[in-house]
């Protein structure tokens, strides 16, 4: 009965959504409203004014910098939320701790061999976001996945030693902080908060710095979620 009701609701909602969406122009069609108004303006004068050859980066970090700042804050807030709620402190009774499985020498060697390449690729994605698809969030995610992989294989303690513990919260906060600094630099040098100052090289430098900060922030947030689930984690 409840299932039938849920199904009915889902079908009605899906019908409403489809009816609404079906009137929109097909995605990618050049005469859709999306491509005529603001986006067209970005494409016309975007790359020079936006400061990055990759238009997506220009929109993300320049035209709509406040949104990206907000997203970075959302990630940071989620990390703080996970740490504050402290999942590791909540479980009662003895944890089902699997017996310590010694690291296989094969896996250990292979991971050590591959890790630098993966890290390099992550860095490449972060920096390449300036000209090609990619960017801070994407590269940061790859970096975070690498750190989690390393922690899975080598054990969380080794990873925690790799991360600078006393300064961990500074590193975690890097993305919102660099954004705030950029905003203030914009006010000081270009007259508006979040504006990018004029000489092209400075502009590019700031964008690259922002991308790096976003990448590190995203990676550390992901590792933070993972480590908070780890058994012996007490912050």
């Amino acid at each position: 009965m409840r299932n039938a009701l849920a199904l009915l609701i889902v079908i009605v909602l899906a019908g409403l959504m489809m009816a609404g969406v079906s009137q929109l122009p097909p995605p990618g069609s050049p005469d859709g409203a999306v491509h005529r108004h603001v986006a067209a303006h970005y494409i016309d004068g975007g790359t020079e004014a936006g400061g990055a050859p990759n238009l997506v980066t220009a929109v993300l970090l320049n035209y709509r910098a406040l949104d990206t700042y907000g997203e970075v804050v959302v990630i940071f807030a989620a990390l703080v939320a996970v740490l504050a709620v402290g999942l590791s402190g909540h479980s009662r009774g003895p944890r089902r701790q699997p017996d310590e499985l010694p690291v296989s020498p094969v896996v250990d060697r292979i991971i050590r061999l591959l890790a630098p390449f993966i890290a390099l690729f992550a860095l490449f994605m972060i920096l390449e976001g300036h000209v090609l698809p990619g960017g801070g969030f994407q590269g940061g995610v790859v970096l975070g996945a690498l750190l989690i992989l390393l922690s899975l294989v080598l054990g969380p303690r080794r990873i925690r030693r790799m991360l600078p513990t006393p300064a961990l919260f500074w590193t975690r906060a890097i993305a919102p902080l660099v954004f705030a600094l950029t905003a203030i630099a914009g006010l000081a040098l270009a007259g508006w908060l979040f504006a990018l100052p004029e000489p092209a090289w400075l502009r590019e430098l700031i964008l690259v710095g922002l991308e790096l900060a976003i990448g590190i922030g995203a990676a550390l947030a992901l590792v933070g979620f993972y480590l908070s689930l780890e058994a012996d984690h007490h912050d």
Binding site: M125, P133, G134, Q138, V141, A145, I148, L222, Y226
Partner: peptide
């Protein structure tokens, strides 16, 4: 780039 993120987050990290 979105695909890369999806692969890392959706298939990798979330599963872990």
């Amino acid at each position: 780039d979105v695909a890369m993120t999806e692969a890392a987050v959706g298939a990798g990290i979330t599963a872990v």
